[in-house]
Design a protein around this nucleic acid. Structure first.
Length: 739
DNA sequence: GTAGGGTTAG
């Protein structure tokens, strides 16, 4: 079924009699193109006294590989004759620049197709994430050679359909070595190293690629001992082998070993240098990285990109920007690295500005940039913006492959639009573990525990196995849905049923689950019998439970533990302070305040934000800067009266400061989330949900007040605080008053 | 002109 490569048939149109001159010209042009000298090449092309079809083809592929799509198109239009190579090149070019429809149209219309045409279509569709189309072409292909077969195998492997690939691979015994290697790589990428090794050992023949694939599999998974063994056993080594070792040591943070291999390498290329730079970058040694970067003989775009992301990850965003702006040409990775860098350094708006700028540049926005932009929108929770990115995404024709689809899911959840998240989820053609986990955890964080568990049940009917993250979501969902016993069951059977040993995060969920249900002593004993040392998050869960159930003493003990571990965690001081205040122990509140002052712990100022007409409005306690503050305050006064009539009592006891009653009430009234909600009601049409984001946990009084507001104003209000989501509607909240 | 291995973004 898989045959040896056939000799290429050059043309269908007879070439003019070759003369040596034309061959020489073509050679020079090819060299120019290889070195990125497009303009020199085209000048030479213009000056040629005679041209063969090869001259045209060399120009065409040269333009395409140098990013000159428009020039390529023009040239293709100008060609007086075209052979199969011209057509195939142009089709591939359309794909490379994301013009899938044009490629398909050209394929459908071309006068004659050879196997390369079919193969090009298959692999290009696959590289664009379109497995269905790749499959369609594969099924239609009249002749299939080994490249065709490997194309469909790679299409499965590269697009998360490992099981299908495996099935296909096992159904046929005549694969050539390229496909064996592809399958080996598939195992490696799916972290199935023992299986990979088995395949490796039973390969009918191995070439250097097989050895390198296996070696880098070990290296990437942290098994440097085994990688080293293969390195020494392998019958031959090339620059790939050596570079894989450097990068393996780099990723396992073994800097000295990496450098030693790098120094011993008989031959280095740019990628080897890049791997060594990456080693320094991963250790945040930017001085050494920069030194190497300056010393290397040739830099390619990855070298620059590595430096950008290195500086960005080291928090040196100005330096990253310096590298970015000094580049001659930037590709999608450069842009993505810059966008991600801004986002990781808390500069969300800069990140989005950069994304917009990328859209204006000649570089096509790739999946990564979309994913980065979406996750930025998610972090700063601006739904409108996220929806616009979503729109662009659809227009760019990327579909809902799991990578981008998952980013979309997360964005809609984090921006508070649960329904849209579910819609996306349903539309996703392939759901991986991350998709399922995002859905489950998303529903849970929004307080829709039952939905989360439904999704979990659906997941169990698929071939995708639940992992540790899934179980965190499930336990969290049980906690939020008040399904205490079900949660306990899952916890104690997860090892047996799913082969997942409970880790710290699962214990934290359990403490939260028991605590929320008021079973504080059980939560305590779980904490006492932990198989490892509890961390501050676990104590935090217990403190949260103490607060909800007003267990003064437990709260105090718990908080002391936390203060020992994390003396700077302001949130925990506030939590304890609230607990003290709610029982009127102003003395303790005062002592705590002194303690905070002595230890230099600063309360993070609370603020909220929301989006109206594509503009983000930020509010802080007792805001006096917002241009419409008069209107907002007046509205709040009015609202306050209505709320009191409906039975609302302001929880003055909860204010941190021991001030007189009237003043306390004023301070509460103007908490940032209340201001934001008021602004939303004033500026968003009735019927539209009001989405507010707050950087801290919402306080009891605001939570209570917003419940009343949702009832009086007949509004759905969705509040994201630092911990979870609250959906207020008709006087109640999806968190069931526990957060 | 189409396929498998080493570097960068998510």
């Amino acid at each position: 079924m898989v045959k040896k490569r056939k000799k290429r048939r050059r043309t269908t149109v007879p070439s003019p009699p070759l003369d040596v001159d034309v061959l020489r010209w073509n050679k020079v042009i090819t060299n120019y193109m290889r070195n990125g000298r497009c303009d020199d090449a085209s000048q030479l092309f213009e000056e040629m006294p005679r041209r063969s079809i090869v001259s045209w083809n060399v120009m065409l592929s040269g333009y395409l590989s140098n990013g000159r799509y428009a020039s390529a198109l023009r040239l293709f239009g100008d060609m007086s004759q075209r052979d199969l190579v011209s057509w195939n090149t142009m089709i591939n070019g359309h794909f490379r620049f994301g013009n899938l429809q044009a490629a398909r149209r050209m394929f459908d219309e071309m006068p004659l197709r050879d196997t390369v045409s079919w193969n090009t279509m298959i692999s290009a569709y696959s590289q664009n994430g379109r497995v269905e189309e790749a499959q369609e072409i594969f099924d239609m292909a009249p002749v299939k050679d080994s490249v065709t077969w490997n194309g469909i195998l790679a299409a499965y492997l590269q697009n998360g359909r490992f099981e299908s690939a495996l099935k296909l691979f096992e159904s046929n015994l005549h694969w050539d070595i390229v496909s064996w290697n592809a399958m080996l790589g598939g195992y490696v990428q799916n972290n199935r190293l023992p299986d990979a090794r088995q395949l490796f050992d039973r390969m009918p023949e191995k070439d250097i690629v097989s050895w390198n694939t296996m070696l880098s599999g070990y290296a990437q998974s942290g098994n440097m001992a085994e990688a080293r063994k293969l390195f020494e056993e392998s019958p031959s080594k090339d620059v790939f082998t050596w570079t894989a070792m450097v990068s393996g040591y780099a990723q396992n943070l073994m800097l000295e070993e990496a450098r030693k291999v790098f120094d011993e390498m008989p031959v280095r290329n740019t990628v080897s240098w890049n791997a060594m730079i990456a080693a320094y970058v991963q250790r945040r040694k930017m001085v050494d990285a920069e030194e190497l970067f300056n010393a290397m003989p040739f830099r390619n775009i990855s070298s620059w990109n590595t430096m950008i992301s290195g500086y960005a990850q080291a928090g040196m965003i100005e330096e990253a920007c310096r590298i970015f702006t000094s580049m001659e040409s930037r590709d999608s990775v450069s842009w993505s690295a810059m966008i991600a860098g801004y986002a990781q350094n808390g500069l969300g708006e800069e990140a989005l500005r950069c994304f917009v700028e990328m859209g204006r540049s000649r570089v096509r926005i790739n999946r990564s940039a979309f994913a980065c932009a979406l996750s930025t929108c998610a972090d700063i929770a601006i739904l409108e913006c996220g929806m616009q990115v979503h729109g662009k995404l659809v227009k760019a024709g990327y579909g809902l492959g799991s990578f981008v689809g998952n980013a979309l899911l997360a964005m809609y959840f984090k921006c508070g639009n649960v329904d849209e998240a579910y819609k996306i989820f349903q539309e996703m053609p392939q759901k991986d573990a991350v998709s399922w986990n995002t859905m489950i955890a998303g529903y849970a964080r929004h307080g829709f525990g039952d939905n989360a568990l439904q999704v979990f049940d659906m997941m169990r009917t698929t071939e995708i196995k639940p992992d540790g993250v899934t179980l965190v979501g499930v336990l969290c969902a049980c906690s939020h849905a008040g399904l205490v016993n079900k949660g306990i069951d899952y916890f104690y059977s997860m090892h047996q049923d799913f082969g997942i040993k409970p880790k710290a995060e699962h214990y934290t969920c359990m403490i939260d689950l028991l605590g929320r249900a008021g079973r504080l002593s059980e939560a305590q004993s779980l904490l006492k019998d932990l198989p490892f040392e509890p961390d501050a998050t676990m104590w935090g869960a217990l403190l949260g439970a103490s607060r909800i159930h007003h267990d003064f003493e437990l709260g105090r003990i718990t908080a002391e533990k936390i203060f020992e571990m994390e003396p700077d965690n302001a949130g925990m001081y506030v939590l304890l302070s609230n607990l003290y205040a709610s029982s009127g122990s102003w003395d303790d509140v005062g002592k705590l305040r002194v303690m905070m002052r002595d230890r230099g712990v600063r309360k993070v100022p609370g603020f909220s934000w929301m989006e109206v007409n594509n503009k983000v409005h930020t509010f802080s306690v007792g805001d006096s800067v917002h241009p419409e503050k008069e209107k907002i305050y007046a509205f709040l006064e009015e609202l306050d009266m209505k709320m009191k009539k409906a039975g609302y009592v302001s929880a003055t006891k909860l204010v941190l400061h021991d001030v007189d009653e009237e003043e306390k009430e004023q301070m509460l009234k103007y908490h940032s989330e209340k201001l934001a909600v008021a602004y939303g009601i004033l500026n968003l049409n009735p019927g539209r949900p009001i989405r507010v984001i707050k950087n801290l946990r919402v306080c009891d009084d605001c939570h209570n007040a917003i419940k009343f507001i949702s009832l009086i104003e007949e509004r759905v209000i969705i509040l994201r605080d630092s911990n979870r989501f609250h959906h207020f509607s008709e006087g109640s909240c999806s968190c069931k008053d526990y957060w």
